[in-house]
Amino acid sequence: MTETRAISFWLKFIGAIVSVWLIAPVLVVIPISFTGRDSFEFPPSTWSLNYYEKFFTDPSWRDAFVTSLTLGCAVAVVSVIIGTMAAFALVRGNFPGKSVINGLVLAPMIMPGIVVAVAVFGVFLTWRLTGSFSGFLLAHTMLAVPFVVITVSTSLRAYDSILDLAGASLGANWWTRTFRITLPLITPAMLTGALFAFVTSFDEVVIALYLQSPIYRTLPVKMYASVTGEVDPTIAAASTVILAFTTAVILGTTFMRRKKNVGS
């Protein structure tokens, strides 16, 4: 008993040190974002909210932020639809070339980002898709679909297909069985997939650098431009906003899942 308690203490202790080690550098941006000077001084000698004001009012920052948000949401929705259908086909289906298609679907995860970016850029130039919402949506969805396929197909494999037989015996056709039994039960996996998809798009910078145009650029591209071209602590404010946003999303989903587990 005491031994396990001791192990659990050391486990927590080492876990805490590793967490601090990993997270602390990220947290440095938070104080910097509240600086009163126009430098990356750490710790700041004076404090202000100037750079938050700039982030939310300067059209180039605000537009990039809104672009990234809308794009991320669109990517999440589209890749959940496509990825869920693909997962159904790959888990339930039985057709020639299944393993090849499985490999193709997951390929974007292991392809080097820069190679994909150059290829996409080349093709999208001829298709006139660069610098447009649809071009970004297409490219980011391709990157995000594998995450949805993996989470949803894991959940579908664990799904007991006897529930479908039960549904059929109770008079439900395929359509009703899918929408009232299967989909509600794999919804957590779909939401997790959607979150991954959103983050994949929100975080993506390599392809976005190639596809950007002066009027259509995502937040990471704007940040990259800012950090290479000028010394502007607004980037710290942007980072802090992103940090707060992703933390809220992750805590929110964890909390929702825990509440659901208690409920049922």
């Binding site: 006897i162 015996s169 008079g171 056709n173 509600p184």
Partner: peptide
């Protein structure tokens, strides 16, 4: 006839209740 049109009740060994 497909299963959902046969109008027969079925009880399974593993209960097969809808967990949600």
């Amino acid at each position: 006839l497909p299963a959902h049109k046969r109008n027969m009740g079925m009880v399974f060994q593993q209960y097969a209740l809808f967990p949600h």
